[in-house]
Design a protein around this nucleic acid. Sequence first.
DNA 1: ACCTGAACACCGTTCAAGT
DNA 2: ACCTGAACACCGTTCAAGT
Lengths: 223, 223
Amino acid sequence: MAMQANSEPRIPLSRDRVLQAAVAIADADGLESMTMRRIGVALGAEAMSLYYHVANKAALLDGIVELVMTEINDAVDQIDLPAADWKQATRRRILLAREVMLRHPWAPQLFETRTSPAVVVYHDRLVGLMHTGGLSYDLAHHGLHALGSRALGFSQELFDPSAGAGAVPDRMLADLADQVPNLVGMLSEVAHDDPDSTLGWCDDQAEFEFSLDLILDGLDRLR
Amino acid sequence: MAMQANSEPRIPLSRDRVLQAAVAIADADGLESMTMRRIGVALGAEAMSLYYHVANKAALLDGIVELVMTEINDAVDQIDLPAADWKQATRRRILLAREVMLRHPWAPQLFETRTSPAVVVYHDRLVGLMHTGGLSYDLAHHGLHALGSRALGFSQELFDPSAGAGAVPDRMLADLADQVPNLVGMLSEVAHDDPDSTLGWCDDQAEFEFSLDLILDGLDRLR
DNA sequence: ACCTGAACACCGTTCAAGT
DNA sequence: ACCTGAACACCGTTCAAGT
C-alpha cells in the first residue's frame, strides 16, 4: 500500500526517525491522527515495524514529549542575560518556551498527561533562576506551583469568553443577556480584539503575558 | 452476558440514566474504562441501545461535563455571603468548586477539552462577583484568564517536584544532584509533606490556595 | 538485526430487524 | 417508541516467520 517510489535502498528505521515522523503528523493533522499505522506509512514501513524501535505507544508519546522539551531547553539555553533580574530572566525563558509550544499546538495536551526528564530539568533551571534572584527555596517552590503549565508557555483555558461575540443573532441576544448578563456586559465593554490570533487554545499572547506578570510580580513582592 | 437477576420489568433507559452510569464508572475506574460497551453492561443493556438516548460518545462526554458542572453550580449557589468582599466571595466559590472536582478526579481532563453551557454560566457569576466588588470589566476579564482552570478548582501540574523525594537510592542521589541541583537543593530545604494527599494531580490543597490567593491578591491590587 | 503478515482483542458506530 | 444482532472500520499489540 505504501508504495516505494524507487528501489533505492531504504533508509533504515530508527527510534529517532519514528519520533520525528510522529511529530510531523501531529503538527500537520493533530494528535488523534498520529496512529501507529499512519506513522508506518509515513516512513514507508508497516505499523508493526515500529515496535522494534519503540516499546509501545505510551513510550512513543513519552519520547515525543522529551523531543519537544529538548527543543525548548536548547532554545532557552541560548539566552544570555545578566540573571540579576530574576523576574526578567524567567519571563524571557517562559515566553521563549511558549514560542516553541506555539509550533506544536497539540503538545500541551500531551505534557499534561506525561512527564519526561527534560521537563524536570527545565524546572530545575527555573528554580535556579529564582533562587539566585533572591527567592527562598520555599517561595520558589510555591512559585512553580503557581505557574503550573504557564512555566512552559501555555495555559489551557476552559472556555473562550469572547467566543462568537460578533456572530450572535439578535433574537438570541436577549436570551443570552438573561442567562449570562455579566459576560454580556463585560464583552460589550471589553473589545476582545483578534480573538483567533494564537491557535486553538483560546489564550492569546496579551492575556498570557498579563497573567504571567501577575504571578511573577506577586512572587517578587513576597521576596 | 449482562445477566438480569430477576424478571421484574427493567427500568427503561434514559439520557440521564446513561450519563449517571457513565459518571459512576469514571469515578470507580477512570475515564478510559468508560466505554460504550461498559456503560451498557452497567445498565443491563447493549452498547448499541445507548445510541437511542445519546447521539454519540462526544455528546455523552459533553453531557457528563454538564452534569458535573451543574453539581458545582448548585453547590455554589448555596453560599450566602455578603458579597461586599469580592475576594473572599470568589475564593469561597472556587474552593467549593474544588471540593466537587476532588470527587471526580477524572473531570479536569474532560473540562479541558469540552465546554458546556453550565461552564459559561459559572464564569458569568464569577465575573458578576468581581464586577460588583469593584473590578472593572476589563480587569475581571483579565482575571478570568489569569485564573484559568483554577477558577473551577483545579490546576494540572506538569510534574511533581517532590516525586520520589524520600525513595532515592544513595548512588543515584549523586547523579540527581548533578543533573537537577536546584531541585535537589530546594527539596532538601522544603519539607513537602503529605505528597499524595489529594489524588493523582500532584496539586495539594495548600499549594492550590497559595496560588489562588496570589492571583486574587494581584487582581485586588490592580483594582 | 531488522522487518512483516496474519491474527487477536478491543474500540465507536450503522442499520436493518425485532418487540 | 425503544432495544438488539450482526457487521464494519479502525485501533494497539503479539508473535511466529521471513530476509
